[in-house]
Amino acid sequence: MTWLVGLCLLPAAGWGVFLFGTPALIVLAVSIAAAILAELASTLPFGRFTLRDGSAFLTGFIVGLLMPAGAPACVPAAASAFAILVVKQSFGGLGRNWMNPAMGGVVFALLSWPGPMSQWIAPKGGAVQGAVMPPLEALRAAMAGPGAKETTPLAILSSSGFTFSDLDSQVLGWINTHVFSPMGISLPPGTFDVLIGHVAGGIGIVSVPLLMLGAWFLLFRGIIRWHLPVMYLGTFAILAAVFGGLGSGNGWFAGGPGFHLFSGSLVLGAFFVAPDPVTSPMTNKGKCIFGIGLGTLTFFLRFFGSLGDGVAASIVLGNCAAPLLDRWTSRRVTGTQGGAA
């Protein structure tokens, strides 16, 4: 089953490698290798061979996907090793850990190496001038800064001198003139870049459409249930829409949730990492509450926090509370009366 999840992530990973070239490939390879080596080191001496269940590969793969392409090799390696050795195997291996190993590793990396974790690489054919930064980081920087603010995030970005790729301006120019101009609206610059994922950022979390492709397959095959992702993204979108603008002084209802929803880490977290059956609540009711909790946490940590883009930290915090949630939601009547038929 975990191999299937890995398969669903391939399109997004492929796009990341195409966009950022060999550095991305090295980061992915190193994190997967480190995860597998750590798994072997911690299970072979005890006579267990557990690589077949694919969880070590998936952990390494997800850790690699969340890393920036420019990260030095030791960062993904240490993150994957920490994820497998401390977060998973110390508790007895697959199914017994309470924190998601991949996210544990990423948080460990964010805490230990804030610098290397934000060494972004400009995408192929992307905007060259100006500091290479994913749109989200640029937005947070712009919002923190003083000065008047436009309403939508894209407007804030372009006003703060964040340049989009010329491919984006050509495509938008063509679309605006032919399709939208009769209707009198024109897409703000950067829409194409953000939508397709032609921007800097983590290897796997750049392109949302490809992630959604994998996510749809997971839902279709029933590997994950809809409760958690829907509640998670829904809560986040509502909160971002209503309170999003407060941080930047735009008043209420000015958060521009669309922009945030198209940051890949949120989609990766909601569909691939949070519904990990081992570390999320078991019952459907539990998953809904868990989703709402994650939504609020991600909102606060993204708009006000300082640990990456909030998804990794909120999932790890959610994992701390998941066993508590399991206890409360499982308070149902146990069994109807009467013994065997």
Partner: peptide, 15 residues
């Protein structure tokens, strides 16, 4: 240059 700074925090002590 690139120490595992996370070990220095409270969590590292507990681990």
């Amino acid at each position: 240059e690139q120490p595992l700074r996370a070990l220095g925090f409270a969590g590292g002590g507990l681990l």
